[in-house]
Simulated assay, not measured.
Amino acid sequence: MKPQIELAKSRDFSETISDTFTFVKQNIKPLFKAFFTFSGFFILAGTISAVFFQIKVTNIANGSMPGPIASRLEYGPSIFETFGVEYFLTIIFYLLTITVLKVTTFSYVALYKEKGNQAPSTEELWGYIKYYFWRILGASFVSNLLLGFGFLFCLIPGIYLAPIFALIFPIIVFENASFGYAFNRCFTLIKENWWLTFGILVVTWIIIYVCIMAITLPATMINVIGLILHPQKGAGLSVTASVITVILQHLSMVFLTIPIITICLCYFNLTETKEGTNLLERINKLGEIKPDHDLPAEEY
């Protein structure tokens, strides 16, 4: 059995990705228990609203609802009239699920490190989640807004900012920092290491995307095959297959834990490379003398 991974250390490209999956493997039960404990409600609520929304969209595509699609898919009130409250609930629950997932995973890693590579309890995690939830939610809103503007201007600014802004969240949780401090610090940490961080995150996301596609592809192929075999029937999408796809997509959100772990390891790699934080902690502990009470008393 491999020893528990030491989080705070320098890693190269392949070691970071390898240690990500090793960490998940070693902590799969407590980590996924935390995921479903704190994100389960939002996933369930989001799945239900997404199922009703998908049924409505499928019926519209199949022409089983009155009114031409082009005239109904307009901006303003017509979107609400067409898709209903399910559309907005799906978006809201998705954003809440992602936020809870981030807070839960970052809190798990922070407590894991503090406890000396031991899985935290549910009560300990809940304390961290309550404390950091609104901070992470606000940071997500601002960073996504800035990324949106970045991608709007020729994509390049958005691509450049994406790996930098990803570091904001571990800085907030691991250093108990404000958004302003984390915003400035992420630029400092990633300096001269942008390509390494970007490459690690891209490869990890590709792996996760392939995993999610492998799970949802069978149900999606049912609709694709139906369109190929019966083109004369119009869209002819299967409501059952569409609903199954939506359910599998929401359950597959558990895989998003993996790139968040990767971001954590990128943070530790950058802090150790630039600041040697863990080394300084070890040096400071050299002067701490801890008597071993299991040894017999010396006799003279």
Rank of each mutant, 00 (worst) to 15 (best):
I225Y: 12
K102H: 12
E288Y: 11
A45H: 06
I69F: 11
F41N: 03
V51T: 10
G236H: 13
A214H: 01
G180W: 06
V142Q: 02
I244T: 08
E192R: 08
G127P: 01
P291F: 05
A235V: 04
F32C: 01
I263F: 06
F198I: 03
N62W: 08
T277I: 15
L111W: 03
L196H: 14
F32P: 01
S121A: 05
C266T: 13
Y132L: 00
G46I: 13
I55S: 08
E123P: 00
K29S: 12
L145K: 10
I129K: 00
L279S: 09
H293Y: 15
C154V: 11
T37Y: 07
F141E: 03
S49Q: 06
Y160W: 10
L265E: 02
A166D: 10
F23S: 05
P231N: 10
A110C: 02
Q26V: 06
I206W: 09
L152H: 01
P66H: 07
S71E: 15
E124S: 02
Y75D: 15
V224K: 09
N59E: 14
Q26H: 05
C264H: 09
R11Q: 00
G226V: 05
S49A: 15
H293V: 14
T122N: 11
Q26E: 10
L31A: 02
T122P: 02
L111T: 01
F38L: 02
D292Q: 03
R11I: 04
K102R: 12
S14R: 09
A61R: 13
A61Q: 13
I28M: 07
G150K: 10
T271E: 15
K9N: 05
S78Q: 15
L137G: 04
H230T: 12
N144Y: 08
V100L: 14
